[in-house]
Every structure is written in C-alpha cells, then in structure tokens.
C-alpha cells in the first residue's frame, strides 16, 4: 500500500533531521541523543519496510534492534563517562552534584 511508502519516507526524513543534529552537536551528549533517536526510528523503519514488502518476519529484526539500541546507548554513555567499560556504576553517586 502507498501509506507504507509515505510512512517510510517520513521516517527517513526524520532520521535525516536527527543526523543533522548529530553533525551539528554541539556537545557529545547531543550526538548520543541523536544516535538513540535514530535507533528508535530505525526500529520503526524496519517494521514498516517489512510490511511494505509483505514480509512481517522483519519484526524479529526490529525487536532485536530495539534491545541492541538500548544496550548500545548505555554502553556508549558508560564508556564516555568513565573512559572504560570495566567496573560497576555504584561509586558514581558520591561525587557532588
């Protein structure tokens, strides 16, 4: 159906806008936010494209991608905060805010 193409196009335009924000910055956190937003939109894009081609099996990929997106965001944030992926988050609290 046409509506799937329209939605896919809207998602792609939205991804382009988020990509522009990732390029503009200005801080690294803006870029992580953009990456996270692009990930969420990619999940939707996979689902819509799967329906567009009449292959709803793509939803499995969308499921996995949504989980990978979350783990990726957390991993990048942790790496960015501590400079390493080793150790826990438990001792971050005592820094004065």
């Amino acid at each position: 159906m046409t509506i799937f193409s329209i939605t896919a196009f809207a998602i792609l335009v939205s991804v382009a806008m988020a990509l522009a924000r990732a390029i503009l910055g200005p801080t690294a956190y803006d870029r992580i936010l953009s990456a996270n937003a692009i990930g969420t939109k990619t999940v939707l894009l996979i689902a819509v494209v799967g329906f567009m081609n009449g292959r709803p099996d793509f939803l499995d990929l969308a499921l996995v991608y949504s989980l990978m997106n979350f783990i990726g965001t957390i991993a990048v944030l942790k790496y960015f905060k501590f400079g390493t992926l080793r150790g826990g988050l438990s001792d971050t609290r005592d820094k004065d805010l």
Binding site: I3, F4, I6, T7, A10, I11, V13, S14, V15, A16, M17, A18, A20, R21, L24, L33, S34, A37, K41, L44, V48
Partner: peptide, 17 residues
Amino acid sequence: SLLIGSFFLLVTGFGLL
C-alpha cells in the same frame, strides 16, 4: 494511525533541530 505517527516523527526531527 500511520499518518499521525509520521506527523509526530517529523515533529520529533524538527524539534531535535
């Protein structure tokens, strides 16, 4: 539903910018 969803996605991209 898909049109409303697309609209909110575009608003999201616009708001991010």
